[in-house]
């Protein structure tokens, strides 16, 4: 079907001939009144306080045993666990007990596409992340994580302290712009709505619970 490109551009050009042409000069300073320090502990406290306000939780765990215990404590149902291969590679020993006691599937077990009905069965998803943002309590995900991150009831993210950035200023930069892949997804707390009389309800379509673990070892 032929589109209206030329007609629309003609109309834009006719209009813009009379318009004032300006080149905006952006100011690069942060709009935050109090910029966050580079210290991990301070950033973590801010990240956690934002996430808790939204209904999520963040932890700093020192060793694999701690991560393993945490996961076993929080994943008590038998709905199954989706584990992203990158996490399973790095945290193999932290996941071994979980793997032996719960039904699970690795992302690499899906040869090509995820089967969405299959992924929807999982109660929990354990994913890595590209970054976390202290300013807003946000997790940044990339690539093949959108379905598991959106369909699981419980979302666990395991990452390193170095990925915790102070603010959105660090995210919207050239390095994230040029990182490749077909998508970039930000998750800020559990899925939520206030569509019914402005009463806040979590877990509309996406996860009802969100946990972020920083592995400090």
């Amino acid at each position: 079907m032929e589109d209206d490109r030329e007609k629309i551009f003609g109309s834009i050009r006719r209009g813009l001939r009379q318009a004032e042409q300006t080149d905006a000069a952006r100011e690069n300073r942060s709009p935050l009144k109090e910029p966050l320090s580079a210290d991990f502990q301070i950033r973590f406290e801010k990240f956690n306080s934002e996430l808790v306000k939204l209904g999520g939780e963040a932890y700093v765990l020192d060793d694999f045993k701690g991560i393993s215990d945490f996961l076993l404590r929080h994943i008590t149902d038998d709905a199954g666990v989706f584990i992203y291969d990158e996490v399973s590679g790095i945290y193999d020993s932290a996941l071994s007990e979980l793997r032996s006691s719960r039904t699970y599937k690795l992302s690499t077990d899906f040869e090509n596409d995820y089967d969405k009905r299959d992924v929807a069965q999982f109660g929990s998803a354990i994913l890595p992340c590209a970054a976390c943002i202290a300013e807003t309590g946000t997790i940044v995900l990339r690539n093949s994580m959108r379905l598991p991150a959106a369909l699981a009831t419980r979302l666990f993210v395991i990452t390193e302290p170095v990925r915790l950035m102070a603010s959105l200023d660090g995210l919207f930069t050239d390095s994230f712009r040029d990182a490749g892949g077909s998508n970039l997804f930000l998750v800020t707390g559990p899925s939520r709505t206030a569509d019914i009389e402005k009463e806040l309800v979590t877990g509309v379509h996406g996860p009802k619970e969100v946990y972020v673990i920083f592995h400090k070892e």
Binding site: R146, G181, S182
Partner: peptide, 24 residues
Amino acid sequence: STGQKLTSYVSVLRGPRTEEEKDG
């Protein structure tokens, strides 16, 4: 719009899935 510092989800879509991706 809703008094949130950032909405719960922001999706930046760059196109169809790449060969390596399993969803989208």
